[in-house]
Lab assay of single mutants.
Amino acid sequence: VFVDDHLLEKVLELNAKGEKRLIKTWSRRSTIVPEMVGHTIAVYNGKQHVPVYITENMVGHKLGEFAP
Results as ranks from 00 to 15, higher is better:
44 Y>I: 05
46 G>S: 10
56 E>G: 14
36 M>L: 05
35 E>W: 03
40 T>F: 07
1 V>E: 15
23 I>A: 01
41 I>M: 06
45 N>G: 05
2 F>L: 07
48 Q>E: 13
24 K>S: 08
39 H>Y: 05
36 M>G: 00
33 V>H: 05
33 V>I: 15
5 D>V: 15
17 K>S: 11
16 A>G: 08
31 T>C: 15
53 Y>I: 12
5 D>R: 15
58 M>F: 08
58 M>G: 02
4 D>W: 02
55 T>D: 14
3 V>G: 03
58 M>V: 06
9 E>M: 15
1 V>Q: 13
63 L>W: 00
52 V>T: 09
61 H>R: 14
20 K>E: 03
64 G>W: 14
52 V>N: 05
67 A>H: 04
30 S>W: 02
68 P>T: 12
41 I>L: 06
6 H>A: 15
1 V>S: 15
46 G>W: 14
27 S>T: 03
50 V>M: 10
51 P>F: 05
39 H>W: 06
45 N>F: 10
31 T>L: 06
60 G>S: 10
2 F>P: 05
63 L>C: 02
64 G>Q: 10
35 E>N: 06
2 F>H: 10
6 H>M: 14
15 N>A: 04
16 A>Y: 08
24 K>H: 12
40 T>L: 11
33 V>A: 05
2 F>G: 07
46 G>C: 15
32 I>M: 04
24 K>W: 15
48 Q>F: 13
18 G>F: 05
30 S>H: 02
22 L>V: 13
12 L>D: 04
26 W>Y: 15
59 V>H: 03
43 V>R: 00
30 S>G: 02
48 Q>R: 13
49 H>L: 08
58 M>T: 07
37 V>I: 14
52 V>F: 07
14 L>M: 12
47 K>Y: 11
32 I>Q: 00
39 H>D: 00
67 A>T: 04
8 L>I: 08
51 P>D: 07
29 R>K: 14
37 V>A: 09
27 S>V: 06
1 V>L: 05
1 V>P: 15
47 K>P: 05
59 V>Y: 11
65 E>A: 10
22 L>E: 08
64 G>Y: 13
17 K>L: 13
6 H>F: 15
21 R>Q: 12
39 H>R: 01
50 V>W: 09
44 Y>N: 03
57 N>Y: 12
17 K>G: 06
21 R>D: 11
46 G>M: 11
51 P>W: 05
50 V>I: 14
9 E>Q: 15
64 G>K: 09
27 S>E: 05
47 K>E: 08
27 S>C: 15
31 T>M: 10
45 N>Y: 09
31 T>F: 12
64 G>D: 06
50 V>F: 11
9 E>S: 15
37 V>D: 04
26 W>A: 07
67 A>W: 03
12 L>W: 07
11 V>Q: 00
52 V>E: 01
12 L>C: 10
20 K>C: 08
65 E>Q: 13
38 G>I: 00
21 R>E: 14
47 K>H: 13
6 H>Q: 14
50 V>R: 09
62 K>I: 11
11 V>A: 01
11 V>Y: 01
32 I>K: 00
46 G>R: 11
34 P>R: 13
19 E>S: 07
29 R>W: 12
35 E>I: 14
54 I>R: 00
65 E>I: 09
11 V>D: 01
57 N>T: 11
14 L>E: 02
56 E>V: 13
65 E>L: 12
30 S>Q: 02
15 N>E: 03
37 V>F: 14
39 H>V: 02
26 W>V: 05
64 G>S: 07
13 E>N: 09
49 H>D: 04
25 T>H: 02
39 H>E: 00
45 N>L: 06
